[in-house]
Simulated scan of single mutants.
Amino acid sequence: MRVAGRRAVEAVRRRLVPGAADRGANPVELAVVMPAILLLLFGSIQVAAWFLARSTALHAAQSGVNAQRVHDAPGGAGVARAQAFLTAAGDWLADPQTSCVDGDDQVTCTVTGKPLSVVPGLSLTVSQTAHGTVERWTEAGG
């Protein structure tokens, strides 16, 4: 009678303990889902790095325009200021290239570079442009 009672108790325990029959299923499920989780994780980090590089390029271009649009600014002041900004900002933008075009009444600076790559084999390019009006003296008409 004792053996039958123990068997009955063991059968009830197996039914009451959740997942007792599915031992080892969690590691298999994790192995199936983990590549997707890692892809989402690295993808979100790559998107964040792209946005940071884009923001850095835009602020460098705006800084270059602000330096070049000043009344009687020397040639190359915008490029120098944009490069100084990129140096101070760090390495968010790899291989940056800066160009500023000074027209009659407009200044345009463009900063191009590559964001940091977290995903192997992925090569992105970021390019941002800023425009501004050149400061000049005017005389009041009277």
Rank of each mutant, 00 (worst) to 15 (best):
N26E: 06
L52V: 15
A21D: 15
A36E: 00
T87L: 13
A36G: 12
A88G: 12
T112H: 05
P18E: 12
R15G: 15
V79F: 01
L86Q: 10
L52Q: 14
S44V: 15
A25S: 14
L38W: 02
F85A: 03
H71N: 09
A31E: 01
G43N: 13
L40I: 11
N26Y: 02
A36F: 13
A73G: 05
S55K: 00
T108G: 00
A130H: 04
T87V: 00
A84E: 13
T129Q: 14
G78W: 04
A84Q: 14
R54L: 06
A140M: 08
V126P: 02
E135Q: 14
C100G: 04
A130Q: 02
H131K: 04
T129F: 06
G141N: 12
P18N: 08
V65S: 13
V79G: 00
Q128S: 14
Q68F: 08
K114V: 15
D102C: 02
P27A: 10
W50I: 06
T138Q: 05
A80T: 14
R54E: 13
G78R: 10
S44R: 03
A80V: 11
S55L: 06
A89C: 10
F85V: 07
V107Y: 07
A36K: 03
V107M: 05
L16K: 07
A73H: 02
L30Y: 11
T133C: 01
H71V: 09
S63H: 07
A57D: 09
V134K: 14
V111E: 04
A36I: 11
A60F: 04
T110L: 09
H59W: 07
Q62S: 08
F51I: 13
N66K: 08
A21G: 11
H59C: 03
A67C: 06
R81S: 12
G113T: 01
A77H: 04
T110Q: 13
W92H: 13
N66M: 06
V134L: 15
F51L: 11
G78T: 03
A67W: 03
T108D: 01
G90T: 10
L124K: 11
S99W: 04
K114P: 00
V101R: 15
G141Q: 08
G142Q: 07
D95N: 15
T138E: 10
A73D: 02
R136F: 13
V111Q: 09
L122I: 06
V126C: 02
